[in-house]
Design a protein around this nucleic acid. Structure first.
Lengths: 173, 173
DNA sequence: GCTATATATCTTAGTCACTAAGATTATTAG
DNA sequence: CTAATAATCTTAGTGACTAAGATATATAGC
C-alpha cells in the first residue's frame, strides 16, 4: 500500500481488493434475502423488477438464466408473499406481466439502508472529482465484466456432461 | 454523466453504476461455477480455500454460513472431483483439514483469465495515481460493506424461525 | 484411571427449488 | 380452418440444503 508500489504490484493489490469487496457485497445481498425471508433467485427477480417495473415472466427467465418453469415457481412465491402481482396482457393474452406491489416491496428496501448509509459515509471522504473518476471506473468496469462474461463462453471446453444450475438454491427456514 | 452533475446526482449515479457492475460480477462467478461444473457453494469453498490454503471443515461451515452437514456434502463432491483432499489432524484426530490439490485447482483458474484480461485492459487506461485512488476506495468499500453487514443484523425484525444463518463477515486473509 | 461433558465431523430424513419435457392456452400464417 | 408458433404452467425426478442426532475423539473433575 506504499505510494511507491510498482504498477504491477499495484494491479495485483487492486485485483485482490476488488475481489474481496465484491465477495463481501455478494454476502450482503444474501444476508438481505435471508432476513427478508425469500430465496436468492426470488431476490434477483425483485431487483430486476425494481429496475424495470413491469416485465413478462419470459423476460425474467431470460435475465435470470432460469427455466420458465422455475420462474413460475418464483412468481408463485413472490405473489403469495404479496410482493408482486400477475397481470395478463389484454392485447396478447398469452403473456403475463409481473408488476411490483410497491407498498409491500418497500419493506425490503429498509434492509438496504445500512448499505446505503455505509456508502454515503464512504463517499463523503472523496471530492467530486474523485467520485467522477470512480463513476467512470464503475461504468468501464461494467462493460469489461460484460465482455469477460461473453468471452468466458468461448473458453468452454469442459464436457457438457454435468453442468450445474446457474443459481444455487438457498433454501430458507 | 455530464461533468457538472450535482453531488447528490453523482452519488445516485455512482450507486446505480456500482450495483450494476457488482451484479454483473456475481453473474461472472456463477458462469465460472457453471462451466467448471461445480455448484456455487462448492465454488465459494474453493475461493476460500485458495486464499487460506488449508482449513478445517468446521471453519468452512463458519465462513459459508452452511451447516456442518452441508459442508460434508460440499467436501465429498470436491474431493470426488479431485479438487481437494481430506487430511485428519494428527494432534487432534477429531479435526479434518481440507487442502487444495493445486494441479487440479489450477484448471479452474483458467476460467478467470477472461476476467483478468478485461481488468488489465481496463486499468491500462488509468494512471498510477488513479489506480491508487481506486485501491483506496476498494479497501474502504470493503470495510464499509463489512460494517453494513453487521448493521443489517440490527435491523432484523422478522420472526427468528423464518431466518437462516447469516454468512459471517469474516476477514478473508 | 474413570466418568461426564465438550468438540468436530458425519449420517439420516425430510424439504425446497431447480431442470427437462411436455401440456395448455392464445396468437399468427397459410 | 388448420398448422405452426409463442408464452406460460404442470409434472416427475434430482440435488443441495437444514435439523437433529450419531459417532469419534478430547479434556476436565473427581
Amino acid at each position: 500500500m506504499s505510494s511507491k508500489t510498482s504498477r504491477a504490484a499495484l494491479m495485483q493489490e487492486l485485483e485482490e481488493a476488488m475481489r474481496r469487496s465484491s465477495a463481501q457485497g455478494v454476502m450482503y445481498g444474501q444476508a438481505v434475502a435471508n432476513v427478508a425471508g425469500i430465496s436468492n433467485s426470488d431476490m434477483d427477480c425483485m431487483d430486476f423488477l425494481n429496475l424495470e417495473g413491469r416485465v413478462t415472466a419470459g423476460r425474467l427467465a431470460e435475465v435470470t438464466g432460469l427455466t420458465t418453469g422455475a420462474i413460475t415457481g418464483v412468481i408463485d412465491r413472490l405473489e403469495k408473499a404479496g410482493y408482486v402481482r400477475r397481470e395478463r396482457d389484454e392485447s396478447d393474452r398469452r403473456k403475463v406481466f409481473i408488476s411490483v406491489v410497491e407498498e409491500k416491496a418497500a419493506e425490503i428496501g429498509k434492509f438496504y439502508v445500512p448499505m446505503q448509509a455505509a456508502m454515503h459515509k464512504l463517499w463523503s471522504g472523496y471530492t467530486d472529482e474523485e467520485l467522477r473518476l470512480l463513476l467512470r471506473f464503475a461504468n468501464d468496469g461494467y462493460k469489461g465484466v460484460l465482455e469477460a462474461t461473453e468471452a468466458l463462453k468461448g473458453v468452454i471446453d469442459t464436457p457438457p456432461e454435468k453442468r450445474v444450475p446457474l443459481k444455487s438454491p438457498k433454501s430458507r427456514r
